[in-house]
Computed example of a mutant assay.
Amino acid sequence: MQIITAYATKNDCYKKAQKMTTKGIVVHSTGANNPNLKRYVDAPAEVGVNQYGNHWNNPASVMGRSVCVHSFIGYALNKEVKVANILPYDICCWGVGSGSKGSYNYNPAYIQFEMCEDDCKNKEYFEAVYNVAVEYCVYLCKKFNIPVDNIVSHKEAHALGYGSNHGDPDNWWRNFGRTMNDFRAAVKAGLAAGDSAETPTEPAKPEANVLYRVQTGAFKQKANADKLAADLKAAGFDTYIVIANDLYKVQVGAYSVKANADNMAAKLKAAGYDTYITTNGGKAAGAATTAPEAKPAADVFTEADVGKKVKCKPGVTKFSNGAKMASWVPSTALYIRAVEQGGKILLVSTEKTKKVYTGRVNASDMQRV
């Protein structure tokens, strides 16, 4: 088990910093088809970049709700399941809501973590998250002297009168024949075995504010950088492109500990990619630059097109899922908010910056404005 520490210092819960004495643990699952920690956790060097900025390191005025838990479990870089701790354990979280008797947020106060759900059909991912959650609870029980019987699900918290009416994580676990009783039994077994999770692997001490970046290529033409980045993503590596010295540089990760960069470089080399470790960064590929850029084909879209205007081609009346568009959509100029599935799908919106969406469309159905 590996624990990433990435405190959500901009979250209102972190700022309130209401102190707590731990009495138990509440186990949640997110209820959304997104297994990636970067959706919720602001730690780009370790979990990847959230291009929308809608992680939980934001105030309620940005998030649209007041919510925070202590940790998340899900995919970090390269589909490694890890724990990301976003709130100190001595601060009350805002995770379980309230019930008829009170709330496990405050009195009695419980440590709470979310497991990032996927489509709830992937057994391999489920088992990986489940096992890490068991190890994490063993670690927390030892660290805070928590009785295993004080580990509950959100669903159980509601039944006990200390949480809002939710069904997680039972709604996910029952697909694979697991229950909270099974989970508590596994934690007890881990405690009885003297599980090594008492000392989880955590990042080594950062080295003098230096970031070590694993670079796989540098190109004059952005199209070439885009192709390499797409190949890397298809191979399971979370990558990004920066611009420096009139070159588009494809990089995988930015690490405060060189040993972590060395490990990533070794993985890339094993996968057949050339690597170079550098401490030089650059501007995001979407930033203004004097570097030459190949003009994209009319209906080929990449991440560089996010924020640009498009419009439906003549005769297009349906979204990518086959649903019929409202009558005004085909004739309206829309903004690209995300490019998905290797450029085949665009998530579009009538607004350029607000977090509202019109729908998903086939890239082949759209034309630039």
Results as ranks from 00 to 15, higher is better:
Met180Asn: 04
His166Glu: 09
Asp182Arg: 05
Arg174Glu: 05
Val187Pro: 00
Val148His: 06
Glu135Thr: 10
Cys137Lys: 12
Tyr139Asp: 02
Phe144Gly: 02
Cys137Gln: 11
Asn171Glu: 06
Cys141Glu: 01
Ser196Ile: 12
Pro147Ser: 08
Gly161Glu: 11
Val187Gly: 02
Lys142Trp: 02
Ile146Leu: 15
Glu135Gly: 10
His154Cys: 13
Thr179Phe: 06
Arg184Lys: 06
Val132Cys: 14
Asn131His: 03
Ile146Ala: 09
Ala197His: 00
Glu156Ala: 08
Gly190Trp: 01
Ala157Asp: 06
Asp170Met: 09
Ala185Ile: 05
Ala133Cys: 03
Val132Ala: 10
Lys142Asp: 08
Ala193Ser: 07
Phe144Leu: 11
Arg174Tyr: 07
Ala133Thr: 08
Arg178Glu: 06
Thr179Met: 08
Tyr136Ala: 00
Ala133Val: 04
Tyr139Leu: 11
His154Leu: 03
Gly161Asp: 14
Leu160Asp: 15
Val134Phe: 02
Ala186Pro: 02
Tyr130Asn: 10
Asn175Cys: 15
Trp172Met: 07
Asn171His: 09
Lys142Ser: 13
Tyr130Val: 03
Cys137Phe: 01
Ala159Tyr: 10
Lys143Ala: 13
Ala192Asn: 14
Glu156Tyr: 01
Ala185Glu: 14
Asp195Leu: 08
Ser196Leu: 12
Val138Glu: 01
His154Asp: 07
Ala133Gln: 02
Gly190Pro: 01
Phe183Tyr: 05
Asn171Lys: 10
Phe144Pro: 00
Phe176Pro: 09
Asn181Glu: 11
Asn171Leu: 09
Gly177Met: 12
Val148Trp: 05
Asn150Phe: 05
Leu160His: 10
Cys137Tyr: 03
Asn165Thr: 02
Leu191Gly: 12
Lys155Glu: 08
His166Pro: 01
Lys188Asp: 07
Asp168Met: 08
Val129Ser: 01
Asn131Ala: 11
Ile151Met: 07
Lys142Thr: 11
Cys141Asp: 02
His166Gly: 13
Ser153His: 08
Arg178Leu: 05
Ser164Met: 08
Ser164Ile: 13
Asp170Lys: 09
Asn175His: 09
Gly161Leu: 12
Ile151Asp: 06
Val129Glu: 00
Ala157Arg: 15
Ala157Thr: 11
Ala189Pro: 00
Asp182Trp: 13
Ala186Trp: 01
Ser153Trp: 01
His166Trp: 09
Phe183Lys: 03
Phe176Met: 14
Gly190Thr: 01
Glu156Trp: 03
Arg174Ser: 14
